[in-house]
């Protein structure tokens, strides 16, 4: 005989079946497939030929892959450094009660509604050296050759990605900032804390869990996002902005070297899993402690 309370506490394992089936079908099976393909040579036409670790040893000695990994990391860090502060500030601001808040927030959120393809095509036109923004600001930008240098192209990628995704993260922070109890601010005001002090002593610590969530989104999203690179710079100039997901696409779907592309995919899989695992551990996110504990 089991008590009703025990039944309530733990739902049966059967409830996990639909989720598990989907996970196996659309995540595990392809992952195993990719690992298998990484051990073969396959052009997509004939049958895959088993070649053992040949692709992997080529990968380890491939200077371009090392560069791609570095560029991936630079873009990732650049995006976090630019997006996190701006979206925290915007989010906290838009959680307030100002009169123009609703209208301005709506305008800030607009880029979120555009598809990446539309965003990239639009920005390519805007970044045209002869007819776009650089031509009008040639005093500031110099030779207007923004997409023609590695630093310029990376900066453009960070700019456009930030423009597109800051609204999303702002939305996260806005929601989180609204849950911070008003009483905390009232108490701080009585103790004589100004707005800046209140932000650092109350708002930021209260947003801790959201910061972790938003950063994980940025890291995992950054590791898999290649559409903006494909459409804005196509990996150029040369291979200067080729990131791992882009290299995977190009190797697989442009040069039909599915074996080697699978190596890159497997490496990305390891990288993304590892990165989110480390972040969750480091931040103590897995313990799920509430920021409202003791109140």
């Amino acid at each position: 005989m089991r008590s009703a309370a025990a039944d309530l506490a733990r739902p049966g394992a059967a409830w996990a079946v639909p989720g598990l089936v989907f996970f196996c079908l659309f995540a595990l099976v392809p992952m195993v497939g990719v690992v298998y393909l990484s051990l073969t040579s396959w052009d997509g036409l004939s049958d895959p030929q088993f070649t053992g670790l040949q692709n992997w040893s080529r990968f380890l000695g491939d200077g371009q892959m090392w560069q791609d990994t570095v560029v991936t990391a630079v873009l990732l860090v650049g995006n976090i450094v630019v997006q996190a502060p701006i979206s925290i500030l915007l989010g906290v601001w838009s959680a307030g009660k100002q009169r123009n808040r609703a209208v301005l927030s709506a305008i800030f959120f607009l880029p979120l509604l555009f598809s990446t393809a539309a965003t990239a095509v639009m920005w390519r036109q805007l970044l045209d050296p002869n007819f776009g923004i650089p031509a009008k600001l040639s005093g500031l930008i110099g030779d207007t050759n923004l997409l023609g240098s590695q630093s310029g192209a990376v900066a453009c990628l960070v700019l456009v990605t930030s423009w597109q995704f800051i609204p999303f993260h702002t939305l996260l922070y806005q929601g989180a900032a609204r849950t911070v109890p008003e009483t905390l601010y009232q108490a701080a005001a009585i103790d004589g804390a100004g707005r800046v002090r209140q932000f650092f002593a109350i708002t930021l610590p209260q947003l801790r869990n959201t910061i972790v969530t938003s950063t994980i989104f940025m890291v995992v999203g950054g590791l898999t996002a290649f559409d903006i690179v494909l459409l804005l710079t196509d990996g150029g100039p040369g291979t200067d902005t080729s990131i791992l997901p882009f290299a995977m696409y190009q190797t697989g779907f442009q040069t039909y070297d599915y074996g080697y592309a699978s190596v890159i995919a497997s490496f990305l899989l390891l990288l993304a899993t590892g990165a989110s695992f480390v972040m969750v551990k480091l931040s103590g996110y897995d313990k799920m402690t509430s920021t409202l504990e003791g109140m």
Partner: peptide, 11 residues
């Protein structure tokens, strides 16, 4: 000097 940023076609 800026051809590396120039796209093909209209625009």
């Amino acid at each position: 000097s800026n051809f590396a940023s120039v796209s093909y076609g209209a625009g």
